[in-house]
Amino acid sequence: MAISFNSAFIQPSAAELKKTAQTLTTKSLSEDLQKTSVNLNPAAVYHPSDDAQAVSPILEAVNVFIGRSQAADFPQIAEQHRNAFESLKMAFEEFKSALSDTFPDLANKKFGFTVEADGSLKALNPDSELSASDMDQLNALLNASGALKTAANSYRDTSIELVAADAGWGGSHLGKYNLTKENFANTIDLAALFIPKGNAPSAEAIDGLFSHQLWRKGELGTPASNALIVAAREAAFNAKRIDEKV
């Protein structure tokens, strides 16, 4: 291929560059820079020899339990859970108001409550502010309130249904857990659900949310518990189909 030059081409000069008269001097690094240099550069460099043997990766199968899929009627169950929450909130506010009128000293102390497996209400002492006599009195008052007891049991039952209906993956991950009447009391503090949130919720208020309590204290599901829930779903679905045909 022929190469042509135009008039703008400038022939490089063969003139020797002028040497500078300034001498170069070496300077030692300061103590800080010496430390930095040591930290940046490795103390030793490994050069594998030709005789080095290649290490083959070992693959190990790991079984991961991800749980069930979300039930088709999850939206309806979630709505029932929200309604149960509102009913419980109203009943608890009425209980606290009555407690302030009759036992103001007790009302000013922080307490929680939950639902036992048999449906009775149980006082909780989250900050250890209640004495043994306070706990006995509070237990009696909680269970004497028919409206609160009914609302608390309804919320407990719909909470169990909500967790059973949700998926073990995606969404809120409630389906990863196994919530039952037997472990509900060790998992959910109902009073903590109603800690005021405000515009900037505190860590305590966030921890009181149902999902957060479940994440922190909930019992993780197992293949066995998951199988029972799926079987119950199928039984309920089949029963519904039979009722629709009748």
Rank of each mutant, 00 (worst) to 15 (best):
W169F: 12
E129S: 13
N125L: 09
S69Q: 14
D189A: 02
A147K: 13
S120W: 06
A2S: 10
L174E: 01
K89E: 05
P48Q: 12
T114R: 05
G112K: 04
F9S: 03
A239I: 07
K27A: 05
Q137P: 03
T25K: 12
T26H: 08
F95R: 08
A191K: 09
D207G: 04
F9Y: 12
D134N: 12
L142F: 01
A98Y: 09
L190P: 04
T180N: 09
L121P: 06
G67S: 08
T26M: 08
S7W: 04
G170W: 07
T36F: 03
E16N: 12
L190T: 08
K245L: 13
A98T: 13
G146E: 14
I229C: 01
E94G: 15
K18C: 04
A191Q: 10
L220R: 12
T158K: 05
A61W: 13
A123H: 01
F5S: 11
P75N: 14
E86H: 13
S97W: 06
T20Q: 08
A8C: 04
F85L: 15
L59P: 01
A235K: 13
F74L: 14
E234F: 03
K245M: 15
F103R: 11
P75H: 04
A235P: 00
D32E: 13
A15P: 03
A14Y: 03
P196Y: 06
L209D: 10
L40M: 12
S131Q: 00
T20A: 08
E60V: 14
V246E: 06
A14H: 10
F92Q: 00
T114K: 06
W169T: 08
D118G: 07
V55C: 00
S133Y: 03
N108Y: 08
G67P: 00
K181Y: 11
A84V: 06
M1F: 03
G170C: 10
P126E: 09
A191I: 06
R241P: 00
L190S: 06
F210M: 07
L33K: 05
I66R: 06
H173G: 06
N183H: 05
I242S: 12
G171I: 02
P196K: 09
A72Q: 15
A44L: 07
E79V: 08
K35M: 05
